[in-house]
Simulated scan of single mutants.
Amino acid sequence: MNNFTFSIYLVILLLIHSSCVISSNDNVNGQGSTPTVGKEVTSPSYDVNSTTSSTTTSLAPEFNARCPDNVECYKLGGECINCKYNKHCFYGKPNETSECQVKEDIKCIGQRKFNRTHECKYCYQLDKSNYSCDTTNASCQVINGQIQKYIAQCTVKHNVLCLGQRTFLKNLPCNWTSGYKWSTALILSITLGGFGVDRFYLGLWKEGIGKLFSFGGLGVWTLVDVILIAIGYVGPSDGSLYI
């Protein structure tokens, strides 16, 4: 092989090598690659409204449940609207008119501003049929010779409008019952009082055991219990009223 032929062969090898290096660099840089067929490449997106909605629902599910969507605005309850009450209205006026507007977070159908009629009273002054109160109070005793009272938290009903706070505290008499019958307790006291059955029925276990082992205090305790139950002085252990 002469020098001229060798030089041509060397030039060809250099050209081939140079072509391979360029092709390799293009692939590394992501250029010249073939796009995937049937797949659309999109940039990531974030739904701000969706995120806000889910956050609101998780923080206040009870509020949203009482203020449903797709309801006529004027039918929404007091928790869902803000009203401009006239605090100088005539007390007890049944048809007082106030301008109300749906709260910003509530979705409804129709005009978001409207007039509503209501009674001119503060919420705590309403009739007891317009609100409900928590009557569970372990310290409330009703069988002790006099009527006691307890402080209960009350909430105005959903469809009632009134002035002031919709949740308030009220001093209520202890008049709840657990289902004990006065007639049953009296009959047990007369027939089986000597064995303490009347006390057991009322949940008074210590007194019942005392009567059982003392044979009704030799009859004296039995007679006294009949009188005390008959006049209502001895009642259920939880302090509730007879039915």
Rank of each mutant, 00 (worst) to 15 (best):
Y150F: 13
K157L: 08
T135I: 00
Y131I: 08
L161A: 03
H118Q: 11
K128T: 06
T117P: 01
D134P: 01
C140D: 10
T117K: 11
A152W: 03
K128Y: 12
Y150C: 04
C123G: 07
D127C: 00
T135V: 00
G145T: 00
V156D: 03
C140L: 10
Y150W: 00
C162M: 07
I151W: 13
Y122F: 12
C154H: 00
Q141V: 03
C154W: 06
K149Q: 12
Q146N: 15
K128C: 11
A152R: 06
N159C: 04
E119L: 00
C162S: 05
C133R: 00
V142A: 13
N144M: 12
I143F: 12
C140M: 00
L161W: 04
D134G: 01
I151Y: 14
D134K: 02
S139A: 11
K157Y: 09
Q153S: 03
T155G: 05
K121W: 04
Q141R: 06
I151V: 08
V160E: 09
T136C: 00
S129I: 02
C154Q: 00
C162N: 05
V160R: 07
C123I: 08
A138D: 03
N137L: 10
Y122W: 07
C162A: 09
Q148G: 02
E119C: 01
Q153C: 04
N137A: 07
K149S: 15
N144V: 11
S129L: 01
Y131H: 00
I147W: 09
C162R: 10
K128R: 10
I151F: 12
S132Q: 14
I147T: 12
Q146P: 03
C120T: 06
C123P: 02
K128S: 13
Q125E: 02
L126C: 08
D134W: 11
I143M: 09
K121E: 06
V160L: 11
D127F: 03
Y131W: 05
C154N: 04
C162L: 01
N137P: 04
G145N: 04
S139H: 08
L161D: 04
S129M: 09
E119T: 15
T117Q: 11
N137F: 09
V142D: 13
C120Q: 07
T135S: 14
T136A: 08
T135C: 03
H118V: 05
V160K: 07
V160I: 12
L161S: 10
C133Y: 04
Q146T: 14
I143C: 13
I143P: 07
S132D: 15
K157G: 13
G145I: 10
L126W: 05
